[in-house]
Design a protein around this nucleic acid. Structure first.
Lengths: 351, 351
DNA sequence: GGTAACTCCTGAAACAGTTTCAAATCTGCT
DNA sequence: AGCAGATTTGAAACTGTTTCAGGAGTTACC
């Protein structure tokens, strides 16, 4: 266990200089700083453990400044994680990795400086390499909501592919021929999976894939309403819509009822659910479901227990299957597809 | 700025003993600890500022172990606060005050030990004295969701009394004579206010107060459904219901539609909203609204700015008024009140 | 009763990293 | 060249913490 004085001797400077390099960026000339940092690495110096009265878990966001993108999923993650941590008698530090800057030596040291003993990591888009780097240092961490091949990385996530396929099959089995999909504009691997599952299921059921029936919108309630407007005003409208996000599902249902249709008589709807939203609408909607706050809870509690044990022995590589719940928004298609003008006027007479 | 050595001299012990008293509870005999603590107070010693690379804000929960009671409001608070803090480039430490134990000297020291420079406090029921104690030490803190007479306490909260009255008046003005209220079983000052506002508004409009029309349930979606069942099966059912919680409102609407009634034709509904729930249901519901995550955002940003300034100069004593939004769930009452059996059968014929 | 063994408590001294202060060095300008 | 001012650096002093050994008290055994 080398001290700053050892490093100082190694770099042939005073201990004061080492201390300054480590804590007061910009106060030491560049060449000297380099020499000291090399000595730090050579001697294997690492800053002392911060004597904290309480143990902290980090809930770490990676990639870009974390601003407005905090959606329902993240709200569930943050509050689920905070709650679980408090139950385990840990405190939770919510932080953005970018705001901490690149680590001086290792991420382990970086986290130690803040007082974080273990991290639940949530990556937005980028930051996968970061997760791997942290994991490979052996720092106790779990990534939430993403999957990794690298065996060093612990993660907890959901896989919605099978149930996305089941959702579309369910509609096909009821007799729907023209099944539309409403999907988030911003592409990510999750939504790409769902997109693919939709096409696979159509093909498996021998239904034609019509690109017109895929609508890309912002995944909020207005987006869902827009999708309904657009789809139902087509010359040959769908009789069922598969919404791949919770809020767009709710918005779609609201808009459908607003223009005077009955669900599921006139239009069948399958949605996605992050929590309990499907039980709140009327009718309660058929959905591919995942419990996101449970994800955070699992990750946090596992981490807390690991830290309590001392040694970081375990691994956690858990891909939860979503579950598919049939509720009251899906039924056989109407004899005649219902067509509605964008303003809400029914265009085709009923049979 | 006295050091441990000064304290040691004052208490006539060694610096080592002082250090032990301050950090290793139970390692020092009781009488010596007392002597040292008295010396600590006498000399005005306070532990050194923890040199953290990042500044931390505390989101502090008081009173009892924080467990399952994390409702939608708290989820909004935690995620709103975390997001705001990250934007201000602070980290948030979520902690429960009880888990920290009683402070050795002052709360200021306690927080400093953890690295918390300012606190957003959310109290569950008890803990009001605690907030005052913290505020009176001059520690930068804002209480969220509660009001204080003590001028030392900074707070941000909502007042729903005026709009609760307006909600009931709105129904009365539409011609409703029998207006029911669905309220949370667990009493707190907020709900007591709403209860009183309901009675006041009835009286102001010259309507009779019927205790039968007040239903107490758990404030979740099932509770709302139960309330509808109970109220609509009364011999003389109400023509309007005032729900005083967001989830019970949604549950009430769902149940009403489920038993085949039309809203607002057969039953008018006014609810409460914490966020954007009112826009998600069909029909979007008329509601007394507050934006709870905004509450957290205001508190957190104000705190962050205070800390950036250095001196804790300002005060923040903000009672937001809720706002009342008329949507599509309220209209004139039906000619004949609709009565429904608990199983969902209509009991009175329509006019 | 004496003594050995043991635990608990405490202070001296050593140790950690940081900060102060003054000297040394560099920079830019006459 | 010479000088004022800023920058950079190390020696020493200063934090709080920890180690280690000794003293005080207690118990166990002869």
């Amino acid at each position: 266990m080398p001290s700053v004085r050892d490093v100082a001797r190694h770099a042939d400077v005073s201990p004061a200089t080492v201390s300054r390099v480590l804590n007061k960026p910009g106060m030491v000339s560049a060449e000297l700083r380099d020499r000291v940092l090399r000595a730090v690495r050579a001697t294997g110096y690492s800053p002392p453990e911060r004597p904290v009265s309480n143990d902290h878990l980090g809930l770490v966001y990676t990639g870009g400044p974390v601003t407005a993108e905090f959606g329902g999923f993240d709200a569930a993650v943050v509050s689920g994680s905070a709650q679980a941590a408090l139950e385990e008698r840990f405190d939770v530090i919510v932080t953005g990795l970018d705001s901490l800057g690149p680590p001086l030596t290792t991420y382990t040291d970086l986290f130690r400086t803040i007082g974080i003993r273990g991290a639940v990591i949530r990556t937005m888009g980028e930051g996968r390499e970061l997760c791997e780097a942290i994991a490979e240092e052996g720092f106790p961490a779990v990534v939430i909501g993403d999957r990794f091949d690298n065996p060093a990385v612990n993660y907890v996530c959901y896989d919605s592919v099978a149930d996305s396929r089941r959702a579309v099959s369910h509609l096909a089995d009821l007799g729907h021929k023209r099944i539309a999909m409403c999907i988030h504009m911003v592409r990510d691997s999750d939504h790409d999976d769902r997109r693919q599952a939709y096409r696979d299921a159509l093909e498996a059921k021998g239904l034609e894939y019509d690109p017109e029936l895929t609508v890309e919108v912002i995944a909020d309630s207005n987006g869902g309403a827009t999708a309904v407007n657009r789809l139902l005003s087509m010359a040959s409208p769908p009789t069922a819509i598969f919404f791949t996000d919770p809020l767009s599902t709710v918005g779609g249902i609201r808009r459908t009822l607003e223009i005077g249709l009955e669900i599921p008589r006139d239009l069948s709807i399958v949605g996605f659910d992050d929590g309990h939203l499907r039980k709140l609408t009327y009718p309660p909607f058929t959905a591919v479901c995942q419990d996101s706050s449970r994800l955070a809870t699992i990750a946090t509690k596992w981490l807390a227990q690991q830290l309590r044990m001392g040694e970081n022995v375990g691994t956690l590589r858990l891909t939860n299957e979503t579950f598919f719940e049939v509720n009251r928004t899906t039924d056989v298609p109407p004899a005649q597809p219902v067509r509605v003008s964008p303003s809400g006027q029914r265009l085709t007479p009923k049979t």
